[in-house]
Design a protein around this nucleic acid. Sequence first.
DNA 1: TTGTACGCGTTATCAG
DNA 2: CTGATAACGCGTACAA
Lengths: 346, 346
Amino acid sequence: MDETNKVPVGTVPKLADVARVAGVSTATVSRCLNLPDQVKEKTMRKVMDAIDSLGYSPNYSARALAANRTNTVGAIIPTMDNAIFARGIQAFQEELHKSGCTLLVASSSYEEDLEEEQIRTLTARGADALLLIGYHRQPRVYEFLKKRRIPALVAWAYNPDQPQLAVGFNNHAAMKSLAREVLERGHRKIACITAPTGSNDRARDRVLGVKEGLRDAGLDPDGLTIIETNYSIENGAQAFQELMTLDERPTAVMCGNDVLAVGALKAATEMGLKIPDDVSITGFDDIELASVAPVPLTTVHVPHRRMGQFAAQALIETLDSGQTGESHELPTNICFRGTLAPPPEK
Amino acid sequence: MDETNKVPVGTVPKLADVARVAGVSTATVSRCLNLPDQVKEKTMRKVMDAIDSLGYSPNYSARALAANRTNTVGAIIPTMDNAIFARGIQAFQEELHKSGCTLLVASSSYEEDLEEEQIRTLTARGADALLLIGYHRQPRVYEFLKKRRIPALVAWAYNPDQPQLAVGFNNHAAMKSLAREVLERGHRKIACITAPTGSNDRARDRVLGVKEGLRDAGLDPDGLTIIETNYSIENGAQAFQELMTLDERPTAVMCGNDVLAVGALKAATEMGLKIPDDVSITGFDDIELASVAPVPLTTVHVPHRRMGQFAAQALIETLDSGQTGESHELPTNICFRGTLAPPPEK
DNA sequence: TTGTACGCGTTATCAG
DNA sequence: CTGATAACGCGTACAA
């Protein structure tokens, strides 16, 4: 056998090894992989055989350095330990995979500063594009992204007034229509349990939706009792108990998400309250938990998986075409279950 | 100002730009970043100032190519859309971040072939190490990893007989001790609802645990009725209904995970059965769902977050020391709640 | 259609 | 302690 056909052992084969074995140049091997229709079929076969026999696979770092593209998309989410993100991100990842992209994830723990740091990290790591949750962040972050020419897409929120590429739903409008339902049932003392709204526009918009519902019904939006607490069943329960110690107990408690709502529900049951007769409770997101709760939860359904898919498609399209893809507003709908009494007879 | 201090605009600053602005060589800049105590403090200051003023951050692809290390760890999980993985992976990612590592994720959709493909993809992308779920995979996959010298850690399972680095729990033993509890309560007709066991050793070990419990109690393990179905509440419900149409109805249904168990519970309630009086039901994992189910679920608690943390630590240690870290068996414990009747009086 | 040769941004070796 | 400079593995003009 020809001396030149030998290949180092105990080492990862590289492009040059494939070229040597196939008896072609490295450029040709590269073309076989990236521009398949620019090579003759016979050459292609030789190269592919060499690739198989060596078990070659390209070094992505080198490829990224040379081509200035990583085929990697970054996502920064508050936490994966939350069904609403987990499901959407799973769909996002599946969709990316169809296009040969890999997902790089980081989490911000709902902290604005940490999110900014993660954005810089993923950028340095060469993410071709970024998925971000919600709109709220410092202007300098958007400027940084623009300067770096890194397409960023906002998900889990859609606001027609914002210029940013987005795939999501209108938190404000969805919550407002749920509030309208609650008000139609005669509730006048309403309270909200919400995640901290400081750097969370989704949570903020939902509360604003309730307030606007109140205003439309001729009520004072400032009279709305609001408790902010972190995302957990326990916290939801505790907040509910606090509400029940108030002088004027609310007759309906609208929660910013299903987890808080289930916590409220749990506390209510433990206090011996009948749901929805004594108090009505509503959620948001429609995660699995909602339908199996002791009293099935009335909540706002959000198409998480479709959102993840659309987000991936919009980003891939942007990368392929070089032009910012289209924003996409997804519909939400109210799931009436057991925690909100039926409307009064007409 | 000196001509040489100028730096291109509208472009991402690189190491050479920092060097020029700081008036040192690129080697020195690199050292400031990687071997800080090999440079004089004064030099360090100049360089850091230049870095700040330029907003420089290193190009990880180039770094990876030159240093042959990506500071990236890959994880291949069946799906993130499952609380048991989502929680553990979140902790895993947080822990990696403490060590400056970023997480690359891929999902296998519970498919063996897809998992193998993903393993090859992530290694090609330069993952320094890999997190895998469970032991079951083709020997050639382990050989590939060994040849490539890529540390791989198995999580969500721990089997003292396997040589592979692992951080997890003993599925077999945990389920066996739960089975013992069920048997002690006088149940003799037991059925299992489990995820498909074909390429899922965790599911398989859990079923085997039940069988061994049966054997120890002097019962025939082959008499165990088993239904395999995919992970979802709906499927759990349907499987339960099937079980109830059997000639000899089981008095206890042991489910391979909480989601299937909650489905069973739901079906039972809809059929008008009293839990645990008419039928006992058990789960596995202790996800949030378990404690808020209509009847709180008796299940096996697994420390998902700690598992994720330990897994990250073991991998980082392996990477840093160059020697395979230590496997770690985590304890599980049974959470007695409402779906298994208390033991008979003694 | 194929080959040559250079550049991508860092790290690391070896002098100084 | 610092500076040249050669890798690292691949993509891609440009030439043939």
